[in-house]
Design a binder for these strands. Structure first.
Lengths: 213, 213
DNA sequence: GTGAATATCACATATTTATGGGATTGTGGA
DNA sequence: TCCACAATCCCATAAATATGTGATATTCAC
């Protein structure tokens, strides 16, 4: 049994290359190749693809929206994005839209086949440059500070967490089974340590810096 | 000129395989191979590696801490993690520690050489399964809801943002050059729309759901 | 041009917060 | 042993917040 591949790529010579490349490979069957994905629903219904190769920069409906449409219909078909862009926002948009992998076009000749196999196994193959983008943007958010960075005690964290849930002092007291005044004391200490002077600032600082989540 | 590779891997047979594998490849020069990375500083100083292959599960000092130590000394040396684990926390820890790539051991025979070349080019090669983990954990945070999901108006967002900075109502009023009562009104509406009844809950909900950042 | 939604302001008041004091107990390190 | 610190509680008060009700002007779609 072979893998059904559906191709959307507006660059005709590249599209032909893809077809040639996969035709030579046994185990792959190309069920369709189109320069645009306006007829997506029909294709999905009648061509029965296992994997879709989707160019990101498509006329009419772009690849991102194409993926969204696919995902609104089915989550089982694997989608591998093909792109010349390696900018962060395209990558993120595609990932959120539900793409399974992200291959830079310059790597197509050497990695297309293995990448398709990877997505079929549930992996998310991506060019190293793409992976780098993702990693950088994750790291940018920063290694989460621990409560230790502000010398918050465990009880102080408890109070902060309870507060962030939207509890009033009274509710926090009830939540942690301590008195209202104790809650106040803890919060005072938290404010001192975080150098803030209001609940709003404390909570947003705690959330943004990963002290609580 | 060749690439200097330094290897830390406690499994002796695997370490020998790595050495053999890279020895056969021209352009690579192995400057050292050790079962543990306790002598890291010295090695860095005297062996002059371009790339370090680092097992994650090392005795004495584990690979994560190894990377941290490397990064505290230099950021230019490339580090490729080798692992049998593909759990989320190991991956994240390694990334935050400053690893450049993350290769599952079962792919070593087929992808080690290209992966090393990838890191040298500034990319972050990783096995598809690893990439999948990262993508899933990103997506888990969810596609950010926009303010539209709660029908917040632009002015209401302004107020919310200002509040999250830690501003009091007075300061918000000053910030947006509107009256205190107008601030109150906006906040009332925000609370209604978000279904909350305190500043803390509003801010944490807004931050967690990505309404503001 | 009517109505719905936005943005603005006003007044009133019960609760809640922020902040200042001060106190007791237990724990763990110097 | 003694000191620092964590965790608990108490009192007091000025300031800020939550909530209700009501009003006006603008805009934008129907």
């Amino acid at each position: 049994m072979s893998v059904n591949v559906l191709i959307y790529e507006d660059n005709e010579s590249l599209r032909n290359s893809l077809v040639t490349l996969l035709s030579r490979e046994k185990g792959f069957h190309i069920v369709g190749d189109y320069p645009e994905c306006t007829n997506l629903e029909n294709h999905l219904l009648h061509l029965n693809p296992d994997v879709i190769l989707m160019d990101i920069d498509l006329p009419e409906i772009n690849g991102i929206d194409g993926v969204k449409k696919i995902r609104s219909i089915t989550t089982t078909i694997h989608v591998l994005m093909l792109t010349v862009f390696d900018d962060t926002s395209s990558v993120y948009d595609a990932l959120y839209a539900g793409a399974n992998g992200y291959l830079l076009k310059k790597y197509i000749s050497t990695r297309l086949v293995t990448s398709i196999k990877d997505v079929l196994e549930g992996g998310s193959p991506m060019s190293p440059a793409i992976a780098r983008l993702i990693i950088d943007s994750i790291k940018q958010k920063g290694p989460k500070k621990t409560a230790l960075d502000y010398n918050l005690t465990s009880r102080e964290i408890d109070v902060l967490v309870s507060l962030a849930k939207g509890n009033s002092y009274k509710m926090v007291a009830n939540d942690l089974t301590i008195s209202l005044d104790t809650v106040r004391t803890h919060i005072k200490h938290v404010y001192d340590k975080l150098h803030v002077q209001s609940q709003g600032e404390a909570i947003s600082k705690a959330l943004r810096e990963g002290l609580i989540s």
